[in-house]
């Protein structure tokens, strides 16, 4: 019996070591090499550059505060965005940004905090967009995404912001409409997924247009 344990143990150890090298090292290195060769832009995170400087990734959403930019979905982690101030402890000893993460609030449908958060956001949104009616706000804009990094909003969520964005940026409604249209990503093959607008890309176009007009 002992002999059998020993014999099996030796083979088990041997096969474990080989698989460490094969699955743990060779495989990821090989895939990295292939990916970097075939899709260098995507393999490095699809970073968007404005004037030769990376300002974000087209796959990752961002929070926007200026009224002339479209706002994205609610994020539990503020899209991993911060200022220098947020990384040091404030008066209460709290650090507002403690490192990169992902996730959502995890509020159950029955959680009263969920209702409170959405109610507050509705009021804030209606104040910022006085022309919009409450029943026209699509739920995706005021619900939190699962990752906290969702780069998209629905077409409706973009539509109801066009008036505000045009007014604040000094662009015409037609120009903003066109920017939304250019950054709309339709369902794949007209079928899979949802129609959606990439918020960061739309906002970069708005920035460019505003610079042109000045």
């Amino acid at each position: 019996m002992m002999k059998e344990w020993f014999r099996n143990g030796k083979q088990a150890l041997g096969v474990s070591c080989i698989m460490f090298v094969l699955c743990g090292l060779l495989y990821p290195f090989a895939v990295t090499g292939l990916a970097q060769g075939l899709f260098p832009y995507k393999a490095n995170g699809s970073l968007i550059k404005v004037e030769e400087k990376a300002v974000g990734s087209e796959k990752v959403g961002q929070a926007f505060t200026a009224p002339y930019y479209f706002t994205g979905r609610v994020s539990a982690i503020n899209y991993n965005m911060y200022t220098q101030q947020d990384t040091v402890a404030d008066a209460n000893g709290e650090v507002r940004y403690s490192g990169v993460s992902s996730g959502t609030f995890n509020y159950a449908p029955s959680n009263p905090e969920l209702k409170k958060r959405i109610e507050a956001d509705i009021e804030a949104f209606l104040t910022a967009n006085p022309t919009v009616k409450r029943q026209d706000i699509p739920a995706d804009l005021l619900t939190a995404s699962g990752s906290g990094l969702d780069p998209h909003i629905s077409l409706k969520a973009a539509d109801i912001q066009i008036h505000r964005v045009a007014k604040a940026s000094g662009l015409s409604i037609e120009e903003v409409n066109k920017i939304v249209k250019n950054n709309t990503e339709p369902r794949t093959l007209g079928l899979f997924g949802e129609d959606k607008v990439n918020v960061l890309k739309a906002n970069i176009d708005i920035l460019k247009k505003m610079k042109e007009q000045n």
């Binding site: 995507k42 995170g45 300002v55 990752v60």
Partner: peptide, 25 residues
């Protein structure tokens, strides 16, 4: 990767957004 998943051994990126904030990717 062809759809946009990264595959790299270099570390996380910090970018400056168009609103002047920092974002860790």
């Amino acid at each position: 990767v062809s759809q946009g998943s990264p595959q790299t051994l270099s570390g996380n990126q910090t970018v400056e957004t168009i609103e002047g904030k920092m974002q860790d990717i």
